[in-house]
């Protein structure tokens, strides 16, 4: 039934109409709307921040060392205060958004593509691959992920690429297991059997019939995982084995402010707050997505935003 609904709805509507529907569904969930707007701002910061504020964010100003926040006397850039070298915190947070987002997005994309591809194989194949691939996930899961990160980053240099690599490896099992479980269930359904009987090829069955069914789940997990990866990267940077200065991420900013905690709390406070707000927004958005992408739940949003679950 759910498939039938999608079939009837989706081809009939042009692209613009679909976007409008999505926005309407988003508007029905106010917290998710706020979250989406906040994330949009963060993404804009990540894309344009380094271009606009790179210079300002690295200019040292010893007079503004640990300048307190909310003091407009030194200019609007120092509204969140200055760091230990007098660099404006606001500009640094904006610039750091770019590294933070790039690492999280890279790791999530890589683990999502590899993990779900492996999961599709494992779930659909009835041969040896179906047995072996899940074991791979078990082995990765049994590895303490932070330990893996420390070893790899100690051997290789802790650059953005290597951090993405480490984080992606540790997150592959999540997608692999979910995709496999979903495929195992979906492939027994009538419409897959029907496609098989009608002579559809294996790639066609996987990509045209099974993929659309499991994509919503994967996207929802990916949104949640984005938050998780961001926290993991922050922890690595905080422990000093992640991104190295002069590169900067929010986690590293928290770590750099730690020695000044008692005298200048704002050094660590603001970047930490941005991390919380971003992960919170991702969680809210993922909750909304879970409902909006599920045809049997979508009515909750279409009913004018009265949330029941």
């Amino acid at each position: 039934m759910t498939m039938a609904e999608q079939r009837i709805l989706s081809p009939a509507k042009p692209e613009a109409g679909r976007l409008r529907t999505a926005l309407k569904l988003l508007w029905a969930d106010k917290p998710a709307t706020v979250a989406a707007v906040f994330l949009l701002v963060i993404v804009l910061c990540a894309v344009f921040g380094p271009m606009l504020l790179e210079q300002v964010s690295s200019r040292q100003n010893l007079r503004g060392r640990n300048a307190p926040p909310f003091d407009l006397a030194k200019g609007w850039l120092l509204i969140l205060g200055g760091d230990q070298l007098g660099r404006p915190l606001l500009a640094r947070i904006v610039v750091a958004a770019s590294n933070t987002m790039a690492i999280a997005a890279g790791a999530v994309l890589a683990s999502m593509l590899i993990g779900s591809a492996l999961g599709l194989c494992a779930g659909y194949s009835r041969g040896r691959a179906g047995d072996l691939i899940p074991r791979l996930a078990d082995v990765i899961m049994s590895f303490p992920s932070l330990l893996l990160a420390v070893i790899v980053l100690y051997m290789l240099e802790p650059s953005v690429g290597n951090i993405i690599l480490v984080l992606a490896i540790t997150r592959i099992p999540v997608y692999l297991r979910t995709t496999r479980a979903e495929v195992l269930e979906v492939r027994e359904r009538m419409f897959v059997q029907a496609a098989l009987v009608m002579g559809a090829s294996t790639p066609r069955i996987i990509f045209r019939h099974i993929m659309p069914m499991i994509l919503p789940t994967i996207l929802t997990i990916a949104t949640l995982d984005f938050a998780f990866v961001m926290l993991a990267e922050s922890s690595l940077s905080f422990l000093g084995i992640g991104i190295q200065p002069p590169e900067v991420t929010w986690g590293l900013m928290v770590a750099q402010g730690r020695p000044y905690l008692t005298t200048a709390w704002w050094l660590s406070f603001w970047p930490g707050l941005v991390i919380i707000l971003t992960t919170l927004s991702l969680n809210l958005l993922s909750n909304w997505m879970r409902i909006a992408l599920d045809p049997t739940q979508r009515w909750r949003l279409e009913m004018g935003g009265r949330k029941n679950v």
Binding site: A227, L231, S234, S235, F238, G251, V254, A255, R258, L261, T262, W265, S268, F269, G272, I275, I276, T279, L280, L282, N283, L284
Partner: peptide, 22 residues
């Protein structure tokens, strides 16, 4: 619970130290 699930533990830890210990 959403805020709790979103908070980085190292940040909570140092804020808690500043507030309750220092």
């Amino acid at each position: 619970s959403l805020i709790g699930a979103s908070a980085p533990d190292f940040w909570i830890a140092i804020v808690a130290i500043v507030v309750f210990a220092v």
